[in-house]
Design a binder for these strands. Structure first.
Lengths: 333, 333
DNA sequence: TCCTTGCGTGCAAACGATTGCAACCGATCG
DNA sequence: CGATCGGTTGCAATCGTTTGCACGCAAGGA
């Protein structure tokens, strides 16, 4: 811990004025090379670091992007953040991260707070109500939504239509005709999309689709075990891998063989999905890319352009051992 | 997206001066209640929001805490961040998060950058070299290290001595006399601590301890499978749960029964550990609490006090099905 | 020699908020 | 009726940096 060195200290030491120092350090061209060298040397020696707060303050625009995520501990969001963070930093911006704990009210509070510090907002899998979202969009900064489509904002999302089709076609290919969807958080737009596209595709493929409510974590999946068992479905699709892994765990504890008695597949393909038992069939999506695209949209918008068209990312099905041929008849216990 | 409302706009609208508005909004006591009410009303109606950058700039100290973590996608770090974030926000600070991707050089770069914006630094499981750490501590802001002990800084860490003892006593209680440790990243201080304390405790308990190198993720554990199998150990301790789950997965793929043929235990107890197959015996630690304690140390220090004594958190062993009685003889294949 | 030209430099004004200090007001007291 | 005082309010300085503008000075042309 030492004292901060300011521009004026460098100026004094270099025997010149603050403006000269500023220009020398910022590489203005209307200044002599020798002075630049000298000032640079003095600044380096004194360990001068520009006060970014003062700098940004003067320059006007905040070089910060506020981001909200429902849950920091979910690998899906961490990886989106990873991608966004990398891109934003490369563009000279930094991230201010807020976690809403899956709570719409808290998310609204976060938006309200982040906007005070940020020049732009990214809402990742926003759990906001329609009205809340309107309010967020009314803020004096551009907003990008990841995994939620909305007007007057940037949109980057996973193509759930393609996703659901991949899943269901894989399952029908294995002979499944009755599929159960274990849902996610009620406030999740992406859960809604998954349901909508699954229904639609199921109709097209002549598959019977049942749905139950679930949640976003392992225990939600585990708790769904009994209901799943008593359903007449031969295959289950879970909201995400954590739910899927929880469900697999219940099946294991209760002696249900996967996939011979029941197939399980899921969305997201987080890394640990490859190491569940059996390894989970899941939809791989480029999460980091979601973050990168969000940043791209933002830069375009900050550059003065209109919002570009939504970016849709098509996932890829990773088939593992948790899905297999359907049994001819429903399980009987 | 609307125009920003400034203090002067409110002043004009309320027919008063900026100082009065400022005082009214900040609750100064030398101002008449009616004016306060009026100004508040006008400000609210205009949707005034103080420019935090200007505010902080004027006030001098940055209300930001910079944090580095090796890997955002590791649930351990996400939860530490969760705790730290909650405490810091309650204290009026916000978090600037940097991810080093387990790379010491990148971490150093991050520290360098974060310090420009932050009034304090928290290094979470710092992978910095000794020299790098010295450099970080020379920055003009207070620094707290989570899971790394160091002088002239705040320290919050898990009590690995107690942790290792809990693990080894559990295993010896089950009759294991030969234990293998599958290690973590070479740059990890906590891996060093785990090794050191395991060795020491093993000696005390008269257990033979072997060690191999591993890593921090599921595939590191999976890849360690063959080596583990050919070792003569009857029990394995892994660097963390991800490694443990990866190892379990290999054992499953290769027909090794856990725990009858091999016991597996681990550090951290991330949520998904309960849903591996078999569920993983692991050391639960209060990760969020690590973040909270880090904040506490920081506030004390920012308040002018010296660094308090290091906080050590004792973990709790959660026994699940991945550990069981040792076989009488080493596995033969 | 004087005036232009142009480069290099410094002065001072911003950015938006906070705050010490002085000014002002009405009321009370001598 | 004038001085004093407590309670409110506004003026202006300030935080550290950037930048428009004006100034100084040397060189070159008339």
């Amino acid at each position: 811990m030492a004292e901060r060195v300011r521009l004026i200290d460098v100026a004094r030491e270099a025997g010149t004025s603050v403006s000269t120092v500023s220009r020398a350090l910022n590489g203005s061209d209307l200044i002599s090379p020798e002075v630049v060298a000298h000032v640079r040397a003095v600044a380096g020696q004194l360990g001068y670091r520009a006060d970014k707060r003062a700098q940004e303050f003067k320059l006007g625009r905040p070089l910060t992007v506020g981001v909200t995520v429902p849950d920091l501990t979910n690998p899906f969001f961490s990886e989106v953040l990873k991608g966004l963070n990398a891109s934003a930093r490369a563009g000279g911006y930094r991230l201010l991260i807020g976690e809403s704990s899956e709570d719409p009210a808290e998310e609204l509070r976060l938006v309200d707070e982040l906007v005070d510090y940020s020049g732009a907002l990214v809402l990742c899998s926003s759990r906001l109500t329609r009205a809340g979202l309107e309010k967020a969009l009314a803020q004096p900064v551009p907003v990008v939504c990841i995994n939620r489509t909305v007007k007057n904002a940037g949109v980057v999302a996973i193509d759930y239509r393609a996703a659901s089709r991949l899943l269901l076609e894989h399952l029908t290919g294995l002979g499944h005709r009755r599929v159960l969807y274990v849902g996610g958080p009620a406030t999740s737009w992406s859960d809604g999309e998954r349901r909508r596209t699954l229904r639609r595709t199921a109709r097209a493929l002549d598959v019977t689709l049942d749905e139950i409510d679930g949640g976003w974590s392992g225990n939600h999946g585990y708790d769904a075990g009994p209901t799943v068992l008593h359903s007449r479905a031969t295959a289950v699709i879970t909201f995400n891998d954590l739910v899927g892994i929880g469900l697999l765990s219940w099946m294991y504890d209760n002696g249900v063989e996967v996939p011979s008695e029941l197939s399980v597949a899921s969305y997201d393909d987080i890394p640990i999905a490859a190491y569940s038992r059996p390894p989970l069939t899941s939809l791989r999506n480029e999460r980091a890319k979601l973050g990168e695209l969000a940043w791209e949209q933002l830069t375009k918008r900050l550059g003065g352009a209109d919002w570009p068209a939504p970016d849709l990312l098509t996932p890829e099905l990773v088939v593992r051992a948790s899905t297999g041929p359907a049994r001819r008849r429903a399980r009987i216990r």
